[in-house]
Design a protein around this nucleic acid. Structure first.
Length: 581
RNA sequence: CGGGGCGUAGCGCAGCCUGGUAGCGCACCUGCCUUGGGCGCAGGGGGUCGGACGUUCAAAUCGUCUCGCCCCGACCA
């Protein structure tokens, strides 16, 4: 492609409305433009990258035995009412009426539509299993779209759904997809980590997320430095440890009330009493299923994991109580709550068990209790794993490891759904004994457009994007210093033709621009290889080959340039494929 | 949904407080010049100041409403 005939509207300055680096660079590199909140035009350069991602996804999905299909983006409300999600999904689901006043929605995901298709088609176990996928635009009316393509309302997604005659077969396919995702993200040239994940709104019993590692990621993840345990912080288990009581004398000093005027938070009381945060017991009041109030205890340096709390309460909805609600339920203001004498059902994190010499609120304004001994002074209804894991925690799976924490961008997630949709929607088959059975299901998503942004978050420098070879919109950029110069042009044009003959995706910067402008734009759009053709080099019969990633440069005889470029691309691709993840 | 901020040329911004002929940089067009990291000189085009209503002799500027975009937020006791 010749630059002069394409549309790559680069910008010198960051767009005013962009916050994160991928958003800034996508706009500055002329790849996307915003049409509306969370809705973007994909310009040619962006679409080329998307097509590259899609090609990798298709190859690997097909290789794994899945088949591509395409489902409608608009779906009738009835399907969503059947699954129960018409009511549950909320405002994220865009609804509209057609001219006959029938309710429809735009698909934010396609479990309903595909389950409906399959139940109308499949009769027998002989027709199972299979895995169907599509690559399609999705629409979710996010509360707060942000960060450019990272959280858009309209986005491109690959979604796959598999159907099985047994749990074992479903698990096999889950594993198959897990490995396929590993291959896909490895081939994309990304550093990533699969982590155990919560199943969230989609439902199901087993799930992993694929997180592209990037400082700017919205997700916190932890992984073991010793074994291969890794999990989203929301899901990460905490190993039950022996209690952290200070001194294990037979008896604790007597309980003592101390005045703590206006000191409410752990940080404030900790500073005031000169005691470390891990000596504190934090008491939080939760609304459970909207009515009951439950007190939850965690150590002062820990934080409650509401997902764990929810499962400890057998799946009831939990929400932190407001200040007025706390006052009403306990008779004291938040900040001075403690488990001793509290007339509420109380559950405590494991770390609370056996604590001695602890500090808690006194259940009266401006006072705390010190020298609290859990076994002596109070007994919660239950102990459970209720807190968020933190870096340094011992690994819940192996003996030696410690957890490290990272930030990540979720670009893929696999779910084992089981019978969740098939039972509700009556997707069944006849087993060999002639009995009707609900189909076992799994589903597997990849955020294609988010992957585009994540790749940039992970691969950029102060000058612009640094594309992995596997995703780059062009493999190589030809940069004639002065294309109007006949000698340079007569070197550039044949090289351009030869690269094209070798089936290499090449961009020729044939614009009548100053060299500086071309160099800046070249770095900005991030093509992995750049061949510079200038008078100095041509005097020696040479051109210059430069790698975008490390800036390394070498002179190459003009006649060998095409072959050298081809080798460099091969080398780059295999280097990416061998990257350890 | 709540709170805050911003809408002025394609992009980035000033002007608004204190009403009086709409500006700057970049980009763009023409010519000359220049050609290894966003050159130089000269000339030029482009704006219903987001929209509506109001106040006023007069509104980008003041008021009311409205639309759009950005950021923050569901309380860690």
């Amino acid at each position: 492609m010749r630059w002069s005939t394409t549309l790559i509207p680069t910008l010198k300055e960051d767009p005013a409305d962009a916050e994160v680096i991928s958003h800034k660079l996508l706009v500055r590199a002329g790849m996307i433009r915003q049409l509306s909140r969370g809705i973007y035009d994909y310009l040619p350069l962006a679409l080329k990258v998307i097509r590259n991602i899609e090609a990798i996804v298709r190859e690997e999905m097909d290789r794994a035995g899945a088949q591509e299909l395409l489902l409608p983006i608009a779906a009738p409300a009835e399907l969503w009412q059947e699954s129960g999600r018409w009511e549950v999904y909320g405002k994220e689901l865009v609804r509209f009426k057609d001219r006959h006043e029938r309710d429809f929605c735009l698909g934010p995901t396609h479990e309903e539509v595909i389950t409906d298709l399959v139940r109308r088609v499949v009769r027998s176990y002989r027709e199972l299993p299979f895995n169907l996928y599509q690559i399609q635009t999705k629409f979710r009316d996010e509360v707060r779209p942000r960060f450019g393509l990272m959280r858009g309302r309209e986005f491109i997604m690959k979604d796959a759904y598999s159907f099985h005659p047994s749990v074992e077969d479903g698990r096999r396919e889950y594993q198959n997809m897990f490995e396929t995702y590993r291959r896909i993200f490895t081939r994309c040239g990304l550093r990533f980590r699969p982590v155990e994940a919560d199943t969230g709104a989609i439902g199901g019993s087993l799930s992993h997320e694929f997180q592209v590692l990037a400082e700017s990621g919205e997700d916190a993840i932890v992984s073991c430095d010793h074994c291969d345990y890794a999990a989203n912080i929301q899901k990460a288990e905490v190993k039950r440890q022996p209690h952290s009581g200070r001194d294990l004398k037979d008896s604790s000093p007597a309980l003592k009330k101390v005045a703590t005027p206006e000191k409410k938070s752990v940080a404030e009381v900790s500073a005031f009493l000169r005691l470390p945060a891990d000596r504190f017991i934090k008491t939080m009041v939760y609304k459970v299923d909207g009515s009951e109030r439950v007190a939850v205890l965690v150590r002062g340096d820990h934080e409650i994991n509401e997902l764990k709390l929810k499962s400890a309460l057998r799946g009831q909805d939990v929400a932190l109580a407001g200040e007025a609600e706390v006052q009403k339920a306990t008779g004291v203001a938040p900040g001075f709550l403690g488990p001793i004498g509290l007339k509420l059902r109380t559950i405590a994190d494991h770390a609370i068990q056996g604590m001695r010499g602890a500090v808690t609120g006194a259940n009266e304004i401006n006072a705390h209790l010190v020298e609290v001994d859990q076994e002596r002074d109070f007994t919660p209804a239950a102990f459970a794993d209720l807190r968020l894991a933190v870096a340094g925690d011992p690994c819940p799976r192996c003996a030696e490891g410690r957890l490290e924490s990272y930030r990540g961008i979720e670009v893929g997630q696999v779910f084992y759904l089981g019978k969740k949709y098939s039972e509700k929607m009556g997707a069944t088959y006849l087993d060999p004994e002639g009995r009707e059975q609900p189909i076992e299901m799994g589903c597997y998503g990849i955020g294609i457009s988010r992957l585009l942004a994540a790749a940039i978050e992970q691969n950029h420098d102060e000058n612009g994007i640094i594309w992995p070879f596997a995703l780059a919109p062009f493999q190589v950029l030809l940069l004639p210093i002065n294309y109007a110069d006949e000698r340079i042009r007569k070197a550039a044009d044949p090289l351009y033709d030869e690269l094209r003959q070798r089936n290499i995706d090449v961009l020729l910067d044939d614009r009548d621009e100053r060299p500086g402008v071309k160099f800046k734009d070249a770095d900005l759009i991030g093509i992995p290889l750049r061949v510079t053709l200038g008078a100095k080099g041509l005097d020696k019969g040479c051109v210059e080959l430069r790698r975008r990633r490390d800036g390394s440069m070498k002179e190459v005889p003009l006649e060998e340039a095409a072959a050298t470029v081809q080798e460099a691309i091969q080398a780059g691709l295999s280097e990416e494929a061998l990257q350890k993840n």
